[in-house]
Simulated scan of single mutants.
Amino acid sequence: MTTAIVTGAGQGFGLALTAALSARGTTVIACARDAGRLRAATGPLPGVRALPGDVTDPAFRTELVAAAGPSLDLLVHNAGELGPSPLPPLERYPLDALRAVLETTVLAPLALTQLALPLLRASGRGTVVTLSSDAAVDAYAGWGGYGAAKAALDHLAAVLAVEEPGLRVHAFDPGDMRTAMHQRAFPGEDISDRPEPETVVPSLLRLLDERRPSGRYRAADLAQGVR
């Protein structure tokens, strides 16, 4: 029996991953800010404990790690913050909004990882997954705030992998998906051509099952069996 923490698990990719892990018999501590949505979404899933809260809150992070003990096999940093919608150019990017993006997408995952490291080490198979984006490596107009945060998160994952060779640390780029966040990035546009999150989850499960070396992986490559 394995234990996982999945942040941002109330909808989208986080919920799809939580459901897939539950189906495998994994005990999942699922967190999200919207308590009602989180409980409604995860209530039917066996082995899932819904723990509503904000990962930017230090007290909640402590509660989250305590709920997973005495060991933790998988920590998935899925919670993130898009920033203003419509996406503004850097010339007009509100600095307070950028602080909020960095707080949720970079600082909170690092703080949560710091708390969880003793449990991950104790597991013997501890794995940390950070959700990346092509905006972390490619320059798109309007995506400066979000992309900068994801690039920083990618680098934190890469350094953590060097510092913690006993763990697997993966930055996982799921590609475009049909999610509420993605819709906010393109207000008023039809994004129905994007794949559903459930179709991307198998790529991450393959990464976890094959125990590939720490590093950055794209879902599209994993789906095609690229190493």
Rank of each mutant, 00 (worst) to 15 (best):
T42Q: 04
A23R: 13
K150V: 08
T42S: 06
V162N: 00
T42Y: 04
L222E: 12
A16F: 00
F13W: 03
A148F: 04
S22R: 08
P174A: 08
R99D: 15
V28K: 09
V76K: 05
D190V: 03
G83P: 13
P195F: 12
L102G: 03
I5T: 10
R211I: 03
G142H: 12
E63R: 15
H155C: 00
V128N: 01
R39N: 11
P89F: 04
L98T: 02
V226W: 11
P52V: 10
G144T: 13
G225S: 11
H77L: 06
P86N: 10
T2Y: 06
L38I: 11
A141Q: 07
E189V: 06
A157H: 01
P195Q: 09
V159E: 00
Q11C: 02
G14Q: 06
L45A: 06
A158G: 02
A185C: 05
A41V: 12
L15Q: 04
L72A: 05
P174Q: 10
D154P: 00
L205M: 13
V201R: 07
V76A: 05
A151F: 07
R194C: 03
D73P: 03
F60L: 08
E210F: 04
L204G: 07
V169F: 00
L38M: 10
L38R: 11
G188E: 05
L207F: 11
T27I: 01
P213E: 02
V169D: 00
A4H: 11
I191S: 03
R178M: 01
A108M: 10
Y93P: 07
D193F: 14
L112H: 05
P109S: 09
L95A: 15
P88R: 04
L98Y: 15
G47R: 06
R206F: 04
A136S: 15
D57I: 08
T27R: 15
L17K: 06
S132G: 14
A180T: 09
Y93L: 15
H77Q: 05
V201W: 10
L156D: 00
L17Y: 10
T3I: 12
R39Y: 00
L64S: 10
A41T: 12
A20Y: 01
G43I: 02
L102S: 03
P94G: 12
P202A: 08
R216S: 14
R92S: 15
V129W: 12
G12Y: 02
K150N: 07
L156C: 00
D54G: 01
D209R: 13
P202N: 05
D221R: 12
P165K: 03
P165N: 07
R218G: 15
L64E: 11
T62S: 15
L112T: 15
R61E: 12
I29W: 06
Q114H: 13
D154S: 02
M181C: 00
G142A: 12
Y146K: 06
Q11M: 02
Q183V: 02
L115W: 02
S22K: 09
A35Q: 12
L15N: 03
A116W: 01
R61V: 04
